[in-house]
Amino acid sequence: MIYVQILLVSLGCLFFIVGTLGLLRFDDAYSRIHAITKADNLGLGLLVLGILPSALSVPQGLKLILIWVLVLAASATASYLIAHYIKQHQLSKLPHGARPDTTADGQDAEPDPTNERGPQ
């Protein structure tokens, strides 16, 4: 059992590293959000799963799961909020480094039919 736990926790940490790596390697802000949210979500899930068998009581285990659920809710909302903010202020391209391909660059080329109602 302990080996399974060690494996799960190590995998979880690995996903955190991958998420950070994605944050550094991808070069537009949206893709960075993709990388960090999804990889960290899975990483934290694996960590919780790995620690779960060591919980001393049922509520303690539930507490671990509760932490994961709360982080999920927060990161889902935060990723939307950041992406929405970037969208509204047209900050999608980072100043340094060109994007590797420009074929799917839909943000600016297509006219946006929705009216731009922001918190302004």
Partner: peptide, 10 residues
């Protein structure tokens, strides 16, 4: 508004 306009400074 509440938005973090500081990013414009980037």
């Amino acid at each position: 508004a509440v938005g973090h306009q500081g990013a414009n400074h980037d």
